[in-house]
Design a protein around this nucleic acid. Structure first.
Length: 184
DNA sequence: ACCGTGATGTTCT
DNA sequence: GAACATCACGGTG
């Protein structure tokens, strides 16, 4: 029951909103881990001063310009991986940052990867959930319609929109309500 | 609970 | 060489 390519080919705000309540799964040699997505942010190409694509295409952002349904990962602050889902059609550079999950499958493996026992500490942030799911820079460009990482329908949650986090440098764009969270 | 700070490596100017 | 879509830790209340 993986989400099909068409799910991702729509505009980034729609994809970001609808990803809340879905289940993201990684399937690696060590085991399967998954969680319900409870927080996302949309990054909207050329009109968005907070997006990595704001100043044009670079080596790093190549995949951002490709078709939706592929993984964009990057290293932030020298030590954490952030996981994004590319949205929209080719040459429309939009993507959705996954910011938090509620852990579901493979909780023991997540605890080992994170070095933490508390459930709340496993996936409550973009760097944390990437580590818990075993996502590294090797996931760059991975197909979300493949076997290694994919997203499934799961729950219907009430969604609230707020300002995005930690993009003070983005001027006016810092105030756009492009962060989507499960209402509770 | 909140605040301040240090760690760390790419990318882009 | 600065900036960065963060986290963990230690301090204080």
């Amino acid at each position: 029951m993986k989400l099909p390519r068409e799910f991702y080919l729509r505009d980034g705000l729609t994809v970001a909103r609808e990803l809340v309540g879905k289940k993201i799964v990684t399937n690696l040699p060590e085991g399967v881990t998954s969680g319900i997505i409870i927080e996302t942010e949309a990054y909207m190409g050329a009109i968005d001063a907070a997006a990595h694509t704001f100043r044009g295409k670079t080596e790093r952002t190549k995949i951002f310009y490709g078709a939706g349904g592929f993984v964009y990962v990057y290293l932030i602050y020298g030590m954490h991986i952030c996981t994004n889902v590319v949205a929209n059609v080719e040459n429309v550079p939009e993507a959705v940052l996954i910011r938090a999950l509620r852990p579901v499958d493979g909780v023991e493996l997540m605890k080992i990867r994170r070095g933490k026992k508390n459930l709340r500490e496993l996936c409550s942030g973009p760097g944390k959930l990437s580590q818990a799911l075993g996502i590294t820079k090797n996931f760059y460009g991975e197909d979300l319609c493949g076997e290694k990482i994919f997203i499934e329908p799961a729950e219907t949650l009430r969604v609230a929109a707020t300002k995005r986090i930690n993009i003070d440098y983005a001027g006016e764009a810092a105030d756009y309500p492009w962060r989507f969270v499960a209402a509770d």
